[in-house]
Design a protein around this nucleic acid. Structure first.
Length: 651
DNA sequence: CTTTTCACAGTCGCGCGGATGGGA
DNA sequence: TCCCATCCGCGCGACTGTGAAAAG
């Protein structure tokens, strides 16, 4: 467990003053040892305890409906677009801006900039690393204010490039983003962006040593965004529950020969305790930041060379979340969390020696990345049915909860409740993907793991779609079609269900452009994950969606249907809007009619579904469970989301 | 009343063992 | 006939969300 301890120490040291008070005292030792008298500990007991009240730290519904505040954000989006999935309650910036937070001074909160990350919503795996301090909303415990947001990097170092994918805004320069956004003030100088923000250009830093900046891309970002819009929830159980979506990254910019440890740390995202009330998440007193337990999950392949980490996608699919405090002792695969608290996963990349020994004195060897869209609230049971539905729709392990229902309907491809690759933000993924032609990052997860049967002609010839997923410089967007034909890197035997099936939603097929939709494959029966029974009703919304997506996977040539230069950069706003607006929550009329006709069957076959026939309608679509968000509001919301894309694409 | 725990049903992949087919 | 490789089916375990019961 030397490695584990080192990493723990690393995380702690990185954090300077840790984000999570109880762990703060264990900078180099055990996290399990609570720092009883830790000066950094935030006295949250003074805060309002009563849930549902309107005390400080609470987000009223009215407030929740307000536009996303940008005040305090140096680089704040000028238009104040908001990224709130289901109200802004979950947005730290909003929260921080509104809550006196009792004894907490504002500077203790490192707000999430609504600008950059919001703008990149459409980018699945884009290459826009930007400063840590400005991003994300990791709750900073008292005493930790010095290190905004946990960028535990030394100011002189290459500072953790909190890489939030997608953004393309110039990094650092040109009104770029600065560290220490908000009250915290810039603690770090602006990121000296190596060339353009993101893109492989930044990777082209030759032989860089410690100063080499890594870039991290959240691979399944569209999925995360989907959940984020509704405020992601993660189930925690005593035995541990896997995350879904799980964290999956692509890393670039590492020294190929150097060794690195890669691990994920889950930290408290804000100082509040949350509860689901009135169809939305509201704060409910102070968080219990005394929670003990392991907060770090070391990637099983650590330590390994930079080349290794960059060669393939780095997935944390086996990471489990638990509320069992005793789980930290003997199960390093589990991260201990507390229910109804909001957390922010963070990725740490620490350069180590060949033996895996970390130089704790050299903070420049550590980089931390935070993706705000991966924030989630830990729950023991799902609160928001929207989230439940998303989980069912996207998590292969939950397939049993959707098949019957799915097979009930025969809605057209366009009339789906569940987003297809063409009607969801995933479509945008192609875009960024189009930029990625150099490295088949996703092959293992998106291609190699795909059941052969899912490939057209039974051959794994689809990898060209990988091109969609392979990082590529922005300037390369111009030739997406060619890029798509990327030679696959066969890595048989890797990843199983947890990887490939999870990602099937984002397999190349899911990333195919609109054109794919018109390519209904006859190979439905060949789909590994979705057996034949689902296909008789393929036209139905049940088998459609992910199922057909998989069919598309098999088309090596499907990518060609994509318009040249198709990219999120060039994606017509109308199209984007259309896609956003057509997310799964919207139920097409055809379904409604079917619902009425087959309600009986539906009821028996899908009694477990929370989505009742009536709720399949627009009026009662799951989305509307955010009570403060009616259809119109949702539309607006999507528009706002669109704003993100617009902002993103124009940046 | 809210939150947590547990048993349950369903799906999937893996591993094992038997059946099958081809070659020596 | 024997040996080896491949294919197939079955059982098991892992994993999911559900829904009821228990706990606070």
């Amino acid at each position: 467990m030397q490695l584990g301890e080192q990493l723990l120490a690393s995380a702690a040291s990185l954090a300077g003053p840790p984000f999570y008070p109880p762990e703060s005292s264990s900078a180099r030792g055990h996290r399990s040892q609570p720092s009883s008298g830790s000066p950094q500990r935030l006295d949250l007991d003074k805060g309002p305890k009563k849930c549902g009240g309107a005390g400080p730290g609470m987000l009223s519904e009215a407030e929740a409906g307000e536009p996303f505040p940008v005040a305090g954000s140096k680089q704040g989006a000028p238009d104040g677009r908001k990224a709130a999935p289901c109200g802004e309650a979950e947005l730290p910036l909003a929260a921080a801006a509104r809550y006196p937070l009792d004894s907490l001074s504002p500077e203790r909160y490192y707000l999430q900039s609504p600008g950059p990350q919001g703008a990149e919503l459409g980018a699945p795996c884009s290459l826009f690393p930007y400063p840590a301090a400005q991003h994300g909303s990791v709750y900073q415990s008292p005493g930790g204010a010095r290190y905004p947001y946990g960028s535990m990097l030394s100011p002189g170092g290459f500072s953790a490039a909190v890489c939030s994918p997608g953004g393309r805004a110039q990094f650092g320069g040109g009104g770029g983003y600065q560290y220490g956004q908000g009250a915290a003030g810039p603690l770090y100088s602006p990121y000296p962006a190596a060339g353009s923000c993101g893109g492989l250009g930044a990777l082209a830093v030759p032989g860089s040593g410690p100063g080499l900046r890594a870039q991290v891309f959240l691979c399944n970002r569209p999925l995360w965004l989907k959940f984020h819009r509704h405020q992601t929830e993660m189930i925690i159980t005593k035995q541990g529950r896997r995350m879904f979506p799980f964290l999956s990254f692509n890393i670039t910019g590492l020294n190929p020969t150097a060794h690195y440890n890669v691990f994920v740390e889950v930290v408290l995202a804000d100082p509040n305790h949350w509860r689901f009330q009135g169809g939305k998440w509201v704060t409910c007193g102070k968080a219990d930041n005394n929670m003990q337990g392991n907060k770090v999950y070391v990637h099983p392949e650590s330590p390994n060379t930079g080349a290794h980490w960059m060669r393939q996608e780095i997935s944390f699919g086996k990471l489990k979340l638990t509320n069992n405090k005793g789980a930290n002792n003997n199960n390093t695969q589990m991260i201990v969390l507390q229910s109804l608290h909001k957390y922010q996963p963070r990725l740490h990349i620490v350069e180590v020696t060949e033996d895996g020994v970390e130089d704790l004195n050299d903070s420049s060897k550590t980089q931390t990345f935070v993706f705000p869209e991966t924030q989630f609230i830990a729950v023991t049971a799902y609160q928001n049915t929207d989230i439940t539905q998303l989980k069912i729709d996207h998590n292969p392990f939950a397939k049993g909860f959707r098949d019957n229902y799915d097979s009930m309907y025969t809605a057209s491809e366009n009339d789906r409740l569940t987003p297809s690759p063409t009607d969801s933000p995933r479509s945008h993924q192609i875009v960024p993907g189009a930029r990625y032609s150099v490295q088949p990052f996703f092959q293992e997860q998106f291609v190699n793991n795909l059941p052969p049967a899912r490939f057209y002609n039974g051959e794994r010839t689809v990898p060209q779609t990988n091109g969609l997923l392979s990082p590529q410089q922005n300037e390369e967007v111009a030739n997406p079609p060619q890029r798509w034909f990327v030679t696959p890197v066969q890595q048989p035997g890797t990843n199983k269900l947890d990887m490939n099936s999870y990602e099937t939603e984002y397999s190349p097929s899911t990333l195919l452009p609109y054109g794919i939709k018109s390519l209904p494959l006859q190979t439905s029966h060949a789909l590994g994950y979705y057996p034949d029974p689902t296909f008789p009703s393929m036209a139905g919304w049940g088998s459609r969606g992910s199922y057909q997506r998989k069919m598309a996977t098999g088309l090596p040539w499907t990518s060609r249907t994509s318009p040249p230069g198709f990219s999120e950069d060039h994606l017509p706003k109308e199209k984007v809007k259309e896609e956003i607006g057509s997310s799964w929550i919207e139920t097409p009329p055809s379904i409604k009619s079917l619902d009425s006709n087959d309600s009986g069957v539906y009821t028996s076959a899908c009694k477990r579904r929370r989505l009742s026939p009536s709720t399949s309608s627009n009026e009662n679509s799951p989305t509307m469970k955010c009570e403060d968000m009616n259809a119109e509001d949702y539309s607006k919301d999507t528009s706002k989301g669109m704003g993100y894309y617009a902002f993103y694409t124009t940046t």
